[in-house]
């Protein structure tokens, strides 16, 4: 399995954290909160498409709210394959950081 890129990892982790409420707005906010980066929606959605195509996430259609102008949302959930990929990424990260003190500089 190919390793996840940093952006994919960020998005996947955000989805994981959000549990059942992972859709465009919340994912973007979550990423912003954690990393301070603001993804434009176009970029976000093309990454989401990619993750979906690779089989890391599933799509569900969620219910509409008034705030959204009555539009429904697409909810994302990591698949088993996605979780495995995350696991692998974590393992890799840990291996990479082992024996390195927290303060590098």
């Amino acid at each position: 399995m190919k390793e996840l890129t940093l952006s994919q990892l960020t998005i996947l982790l955000a989805i994981l954290r959000l549990k059942d409420n992972a859709y465009g707005v919340t994912i973007r906010r979550q990423i912003h909160e954690v990393t301070g980066k603001a993804f434009p929606y176009g970029t976000l959605y093309s990454f989401l498409e990619l993750l979906h195509k690779k089989g890391y996430v599933e799509k569900f259609i969620g219910g509409p709210t008034k705030k959204r102008g009555g539009r429904r949302k697409i909810l994302y959930k990591p698949t088993k394959k996605g979780l495995e990929a995350l696991q692998a990424a974590q393992k890799l990260q840990k291996a990479l950081w082992r024996d390195i003190p927290e303060k590098v500089v």
């Binding site: 859709y23 465009g24 707005v25 973007r28 929606y41 176009g42 959605y45 498409e49 509409p64 709210t65 705030k67 959204r68 102008g69 539009r71 429904r72 949302k73 697409i74």
Partner: peptide, 21 residues
């Protein structure tokens, strides 16, 4: 126009939600 066919609601909805906030 730009978003994927059949899933326009998702993106436009997201944008509107944030817009409201």
């Amino acid at each position: 126009r730009l978003s994927r066919r059949g899933e326009e609601f998702s993106l436009v909805g997201d944008l509107q939600e944030e817009f409201c906030d």
